[in-house]
């Protein structure tokens, strides 16, 4: 597989279109949940995301976002949504820390598929310095939102 095909694996292109969790509009938070929301922008390319996290009974009970951007940033937000919902904040933080480590490794650290699931497919972006921010955008928003929800 070429580097380009590694970057744009089918699962990435699928999630770039499916955009799981891009349902922020018209869906207010559930009553009783702790809520945190974060807006992140990549000023170099205009990628943008507003992401809301709800926690209830010790787990991330909902994650919704609205955003626009390249396929990597959109796929990342979608994969993140699938991964994070149902996890405890501590478990999510473990995932995010590992994801960041992989993304910053310039392709040197392999993603732990046990931990990241399908989101491990995003590791192809780590070879492209300019795309790391695209992949990180939703994760930074989620960490920020989670810190507020706590």
């Amino acid at each position: 597989m070429s580097d380009l095909d590694q970057l744009y694996q089918d699962i990435i292109l699928f999630h770039a279109k499916a955009k799981h969790g891009s349902t922020l509009e018209g869906n207010p938070p559930e009553a009783g949940a702790a809520v945190g929301q974060s807006h992140q922008l990549n000023p170099t390319c205009g990628d943008e995301i507003t992401l809301r996290v709800e926690t209830k009974d010790g787990v991330i009970s909902a994650l919704r976002w609205a955003g626009a951007g390249c396929s990597i940033s959109m796929a990342s937000a979608s994969l993140l949504t699938d991964l994070a919902v149902g996890e405890s904040p501590a478990e999510f933080t473990k995932m995010a820390d590992h994801f960041r480590e992989v993304m910053r490794s310039r392709g040197k650290i392999a993603a732990d598929e046990e931990l990241l699931g399908d989101a491990a497919a995003l590791s192809g972006a780590s070879r492209y310095v300019a795309r790391v921010k695209c992949a990180m955008l939703a994760w930074v928003a989620a960490e920020d939102a989670l810190a507020i929800a706590r």
Binding site: S2, D3, L4, L7, Y8, C45, D47, G69, C70, S71, I72, Y128, R131, C134
Partner: peptide, 13 residues
């Protein structure tokens, strides 16, 4: 249907 960043990446390849 294709973000400019992705267009640029394809061309760079």
């Amino acid at each position: 249907g294709v973000h400019a960043h992705d267009v640029g990446q394809y061309l760079d390849d």
